[in-house]
């Protein structure tokens, strides 16, 4: 996955969220509609246009004390409004390691 930290032009092709890592502990967080951060993807504000994505990202980036390295990440919105990560990298960030820690 090309590191999203190298995102240059912002052009989204589907539903997206803004994600970052919380400054004090590094936890994965998502930008919420009420201008905060949440560790739950379900709380994330979903944007559907590039303009909205840009605006949400700018807002996230501006909160440099709250969270670090904000970028736009794709999501899938399933039936009933359930939000799923849009690629493997985001899946891993949201759900955790894909590996067993101890030998099987």
């Amino acid at each position: 996955m090309t590191s999203p930290l190298e995102q240059k032009k912002i052009r989204i092709t589907g539903p997206s969220v803004v994600t970052a890592n919380r400054t004090w502990d590094g936890a994965v967080v998502y930008r919420t509609a009420d201008r905060g951060w949440s560790t739950a993807l379900a709380d994330a504000a979903i944007v559907g246009t590039s303009d909205d994505a840009r605006a949400l990202l700018a807002e996230g980036v501006a909160d440099d004390v709250g969270a670090v390295g904000a970028y736009i990440a794709p999501v899938e919105v399933k039936e009933g409004g359930v939000i799923k990560p849009g690629n493997l990298r985001e899946h891993i960030r949201s759900k955790g390691l894909t590996i067993d820690l101890l030998p099987a």
Binding site: N21, D25, G26, V68, G69, R89, I92, R93
Partner: peptide, 22 residues
């Protein structure tokens, strides 16, 4: 300190920011 300033300082002491955490 902004993250941009701090990044170099934390790296000098072995602290990266990875997918899930520092």
């Amino acid at each position: 300190l902004t993250e941009d300033e701090f990044k170099i300082l934390r790296l000098q002491n072995g602290v990266y920011l990875q997918l899930h955490a520092y």
